[in-house]
Simulated assay, not measured.
Amino acid sequence: MSHSPHVLIEESDPFCLGPVEAATLLAGAPWRRYAVIGDSLSAGTGDASPGYLDQGWSDRLAGILRRVRPELAYLNTAEIGATTARTLDAQLHPVIEFRPDLLHVPSGANDILRRHPDFGEIEAMLRRMYELAAGTGALLTTFTLGRAFVVAVFPDWHERVTTLNGIVRRLAAEYDAVVVDMWDHPVNDRDTLLSADRIHFSASGQAVMAAEMVKALASRLGRTAPA
Protein backbone atom coordinates (compact mmCIF):
# COMPACT_ATOMS: atom_id res chain seq x y z
CA MET A 1 0.00 0.00 0.00
CA SER A 2 1.45 3.37 -1.01
CA HIS A 3 1.07 6.56 0.98
CA SER A 4 1.23 10.19 -0.08
CA PRO A 5 4.58 11.71 0.93
CA HIS A 6 2.60 14.52 2.58
CA VAL A 7 0.63 12.16 4.85
CA LEU A 8 2.51 11.02 7.93
CA ILE A 9 2.60 7.39 8.92
CA GLU A 10 4.36 5.96 11.92
CA GLU A 11 7.52 5.04 10.02
CA SER A 12 7.94 8.60 8.70
CA ASP A 13 6.72 10.54 11.72
CA PRO A 14 9.68 12.57 13.01
CA PHE A 15 8.33 12.44 16.57
CA CYS A 16 8.07 8.65 16.67
CA LEU A 17 10.65 5.98 17.42
CA GLY A 18 10.80 2.61 15.74
CA PRO A 19 10.66 -0.34 18.14
CA VAL A 20 14.29 -1.30 17.55
CA GLU A 21 15.51 2.28 18.03
CA ALA A 22 13.40 2.63 21.18
CA ALA A 23 14.67 -0.64 22.62
CA THR A 24 18.25 0.38 21.84
CA LEU A 25 17.78 3.58 23.83
CA LEU A 26 16.58 1.54 26.80
CA ALA A 27 19.03 -1.36 26.42
CA GLY A 28 20.06 -2.65 29.81
CA ALA A 29 17.33 -0.69 31.60
CA PRO A 30 16.84 -2.11 35.10
CA TRP A 31 13.05 -2.13 35.26
CA ARG A 32 11.35 -5.51 35.51
CA ARG A 33 7.97 -4.63 37.02
CA TYR A 34 6.08 -1.84 35.26
CA ALA A 35 2.75 -0.52 36.56
CA VAL A 36 0.38 2.21 35.38
CA ILE A 37 -2.39 3.81 37.44
CA GLY A 38 -4.91 6.52 36.73
CA ASP A 39 -7.48 7.41 34.12
CA SER A 40 -8.10 7.02 30.38
CA LEU A 41 -5.02 9.12 29.63
CA SER A 42 -2.92 6.63 31.58
CA ALA A 43 -4.65 3.77 29.78
CA GLY A 44 -3.86 5.27 26.37
CA THR A 45 -7.48 5.48 25.20
CA GLY A 46 -7.92 6.91 21.70
CA ASP A 47 -9.16 6.39 18.16
CA ALA A 48 -7.21 4.57 15.48
CA SER A 49 -5.03 6.57 13.06
CA PRO A 50 -4.30 5.41 9.49
CA GLY A 51 -0.69 4.28 9.19
CA TYR A 52 -0.14 3.88 12.95
CA LEU A 53 -0.30 0.86 15.23
CA ASP A 54 -3.62 1.05 17.07
CA GLN A 55 -2.21 0.84 20.58
CA GLY A 56 -2.08 3.16 23.58
CA TRP A 57 1.19 4.70 24.76
CA SER A 58 1.41 2.65 27.98
CA ASP A 59 0.97 -0.69 26.21
CA ARG A 60 3.49 0.47 23.61
CA LEU A 61 6.01 1.28 26.32
CA ALA A 62 5.44 -2.08 27.99
CA GLY A 63 6.17 -3.76 24.66
CA ILE A 64 9.40 -1.82 24.26
CA LEU A 65 10.48 -2.61 27.82
CA ARG A 66 9.70 -6.27 27.14
CA ARG A 67 12.13 -6.20 24.22
CA VAL A 68 14.76 -5.12 26.75
CA ARG A 69 13.57 -7.38 29.58
CA PRO A 70 11.53 -10.31 28.18
CA GLU A 71 10.58 -11.26 31.72
CA LEU A 72 8.91 -7.86 32.32
CA ALA A 73 5.76 -8.00 34.45
CA TYR A 74 3.18 -5.35 33.51
CA LEU A 75 0.10 -4.17 35.41
CA ASN A 76 -2.21 -1.42 34.15
CA THR A 77 -5.11 -0.60 36.47
CA ALA A 78 -6.09 2.64 34.72
CA GLU A 79 -9.83 3.28 34.64
CA ILE A 80 -11.77 5.57 32.30
CA GLY A 81 -13.10 8.55 34.24
CA ALA A 82 -10.98 7.96 37.33
CA THR A 83 -10.23 10.98 39.48
CA THR A 84 -7.21 11.10 41.76
CA ALA A 85 -9.50 10.21 44.67
CA ARG A 86 -10.81 7.18 42.78
CA THR A 87 -7.25 6.17 41.88
CA LEU A 88 -6.24 6.36 45.53
CA ASP A 89 -9.25 4.33 46.64
CA ALA A 90 -9.28 1.61 43.99
CA GLN A 91 -5.87 1.32 42.37
CA LEU A 92 -3.05 1.96 44.81
CA HIS A 93 -3.49 -1.18 46.92
CA PRO A 94 -3.16 -3.72 44.08
CA VAL A 95 -0.26 -1.76 42.62
CA ILE A 96 1.58 -1.67 45.95
CA GLU A 97 1.10 -5.43 46.17
CA PHE A 98 2.49 -5.75 42.63
CA ARG A 99 5.81 -4.20 43.85
CA PRO A 100 6.66 -2.15 40.75
CA ASP A 101 10.08 -0.71 40.07
CA LEU A 102 8.66 1.64 37.41
CA LEU A 103 5.30 3.28 38.08
CA HIS A 104 3.31 5.80 36.03
CA VAL A 105 1.02 8.16 37.93
CA PRO A 106 -1.76 10.31 36.40
CA SER A 107 -1.96 14.08 36.04
CA GLY A 108 -5.41 14.66 37.53
CA ALA A 109 -7.24 15.47 34.29
CA ASN A 110 -10.64 14.40 35.63
CA ASP A 111 -10.15 16.45 38.80
CA ILE A 112 -10.62 19.69 36.87
CA LEU A 113 -13.95 18.73 35.30
CA ARG A 114 -15.94 20.08 38.24
CA ARG A 115 -17.83 23.36 37.95
CA HIS A 116 -15.52 24.92 40.54
CA PRO A 117 -12.38 22.79 41.05
CA ASP A 118 -10.57 23.20 44.38
CA PHE A 119 -6.91 23.24 43.40
CA GLY A 120 -5.77 23.07 47.01
CA GLU A 121 -7.70 19.83 47.43
CA ILE A 122 -6.47 18.55 44.07
CA GLU A 123 -2.85 19.18 45.04
CA ALA A 124 -3.35 17.50 48.41
CA MET A 125 -4.81 14.37 46.76
CA LEU A 126 -2.08 14.27 44.13
CA ARG A 127 0.53 14.64 46.86
CA ARG A 128 -0.98 11.73 48.78
CA MET A 129 -0.87 9.66 45.59
CA TYR A 130 2.79 10.56 45.04
CA GLU A 131 3.63 9.67 48.65
CA LEU A 132 2.05 6.23 48.35
CA ALA A 133 3.50 5.64 44.88
CA ALA A 134 6.99 6.69 45.98
CA GLY A 135 6.67 4.34 48.95
CA THR A 136 6.90 1.41 46.54
CA GLY A 137 10.49 2.41 45.78
CA ALA A 138 9.67 2.60 42.07
CA LEU A 139 10.87 5.26 39.69
CA LEU A 140 7.79 7.40 39.03
CA THR A 141 6.75 8.79 35.65
CA THR A 142 4.04 11.26 34.69
CA PHE A 143 3.17 13.79 31.98
CA THR A 144 1.57 17.20 31.75
CA LEU A 145 -1.62 17.72 29.77
CA GLY A 146 -1.23 19.00 26.22
CA ARG A 147 -2.74 22.30 25.12
CA ALA A 148 -4.75 20.53 22.40
CA PHE A 149 -6.80 18.91 25.19
CA VAL A 150 -9.76 21.32 25.50
CA VAL A 151 -13.13 21.05 27.24
CA ALA A 152 -14.89 24.00 25.63
CA VAL A 153 -17.78 24.10 28.11
CA PHE A 154 -15.38 25.66 30.63
CA PRO A 155 -14.28 29.14 29.46
CA ASP A 156 -11.37 29.07 31.92
CA TRP A 157 -10.11 25.70 30.66
CA HIS A 158 -6.69 27.06 29.65
CA GLU A 159 -6.13 28.38 33.16
CA ARG A 160 -7.33 25.12 34.70
CA VAL A 161 -4.87 23.06 32.69
CA THR A 162 -1.91 25.39 33.23
CA THR A 163 -2.61 25.44 36.99
CA LEU A 164 -2.85 21.65 37.12
CA ASN A 165 0.30 21.26 35.02
CA GLY A 166 2.12 23.52 37.44
CA ILE A 167 1.11 21.28 40.34
CA VAL A 168 2.25 18.20 38.43
CA ARG A 169 5.63 19.75 37.61
CA ARG A 170 6.21 20.73 41.25
CA LEU A 171 5.30 17.30 42.61
CA ALA A 172 7.33 15.53 39.95
CA ALA A 173 10.37 17.59 40.90
CA GLU A 174 9.79 16.98 44.60
CA TYR A 175 9.51 13.21 44.17
CA ASP A 176 12.20 12.96 41.48
CA ALA A 177 9.68 11.65 38.96
CA VAL A 178 10.34 11.50 35.23
CA VAL A 179 7.99 14.07 33.71
CA VAL A 180 7.14 14.25 30.01
CA ASP A 181 5.98 17.80 29.37
CA MET A 182 3.35 17.61 26.62
CA TRP A 183 1.87 21.08 27.17
CA ASP A 184 3.74 22.80 24.34
CA HIS A 185 4.93 19.80 22.33
CA PRO A 186 4.61 20.60 18.59
CA VAL A 187 2.36 17.57 18.13
CA ASN A 188 -0.39 19.72 19.68
CA ASP A 189 -0.59 21.62 16.39
CA ARG A 190 -1.60 18.58 14.34
CA ASP A 191 -5.19 18.54 13.09
CA THR A 192 -5.24 14.75 13.41
CA LEU A 193 -3.96 14.60 16.99
CA LEU A 194 -7.23 14.22 18.86
CA SER A 195 -9.82 11.47 18.72
CA ALA A 196 -13.42 12.18 17.75
CA ASP A 197 -14.20 13.11 21.38
CA ARG A 198 -11.67 15.99 21.07
CA ILE A 199 -10.13 14.91 24.37
CA HIS A 200 -7.97 11.83 23.91
CA PHE A 201 -4.95 11.52 21.65
CA SER A 202 -5.54 9.36 18.60
CA ALA A 203 -3.16 6.46 17.88
CA SER A 204 -0.72 8.87 16.20
CA GLY A 205 -0.55 10.90 19.40
CA GLN A 206 -0.21 7.73 21.46
CA ALA A 207 2.81 6.79 19.35
CA VAL A 208 4.38 10.18 20.03
CA MET A 209 3.62 9.92 23.76
CA ALA A 210 5.33 6.54 23.91
CA ALA A 211 8.36 7.92 22.08
CA GLU A 212 8.60 10.87 24.47
CA MET A 213 8.40 8.52 27.45
CA VAL A 214 11.18 6.36 26.01
CA LYS A 215 13.33 9.46 25.47
CA ALA A 216 12.69 10.66 29.02
CA LEU A 217 13.57 7.29 30.50
CA ALA A 218 16.66 7.09 28.31
CA SER A 219 17.68 10.51 29.58
CA ARG A 220 17.35 9.21 33.14
CA LEU A 221 19.74 6.45 32.11
CA GLY A 222 22.17 9.07 30.78
CA ARG A 223 21.39 8.52 27.10
CA THR A 224 20.18 10.93 24.43
CA ALA A 225 17.93 10.12 21.50
CA PRO A 226 19.25 11.19 18.07
CA ALA A 227 17.81 14.47 16.81
Rank of each mutant, 00 (worst) to 15 (best):
V161G: 06
R190M: 11
W183Y: 10
R147V: 00
L194D: 08
L41G: 03
D47S: 12
K215A: 09
L25G: 06
T141I: 01
Y130R: 06
H158S: 06
T144A: 02
T142D: 01
K215G: 03
V151I: 15
A43S: 13
L132R: 13
I9V: 14
D156P: 06
A207L: 07
L132N: 02
A48H: 09
A203N: 05
R99F: 00
D101I: 14
S42Y: 06
Y52G: 03
N188T: 12
F154M: 11
H93T: 10
F15R: 13
R160L: 05
V36K: 02
V153F: 14
A23F: 04
F119C: 08
P94Y: 10
V36F: 11
A225K: 07
G120W: 02
F149A: 05
P70S: 13
L92I: 10
F15C: 09
F149W: 14
E121T: 11
P30E: 14
L113H: 12
D189H: 13
R67W: 00
A109I: 15
Y52L: 07
D54W: 11
G38H: 07
M209K: 07
L140W: 04
R128I: 08
H104Q: 14
E123P: 02
T142V: 08
R147K: 12
L126S: 07
D47E: 12
A210E: 03
R32C: 11
A82S: 15
Y74D: 05
D39W: 04
D197K: 06
A43L: 14
R86W: 13
A29N: 10
V168T: 11
A216Y: 05
G51Q: 04
M129L: 15
V180I: 13
V187D: 07
V68A: 10
L26R: 07
G46S: 05
D89W: 13
T224D: 12
T163Y: 07
S40G: 08
T144N: 02
F143Q: 09
A73T: 12
N110M: 12
L75G: 06
A210P: 03
E11H: 05
S204I: 12
I199A: 13
V95G: 03
F154E: 09
I122N: 04
M182C: 10
R223N: 12
V95Q: 03
I122S: 08
N188M: 08
E159F: 00
L102Y: 03
H93W: 01
F154Y: 15
P5F: 06
A43D: 10
S49I: 02
T87I: 10
V7L: 13
A43P: 03
P94V: 09
F119G: 06
F143D: 04
P106V: 06
E71Y: 06
F98Y: 07
A23I: 05
F119I: 05
V168G: 02
L65T: 01
I64P: 01
F15D: 15
Y74T: 13
F154A: 10
R99G: 00
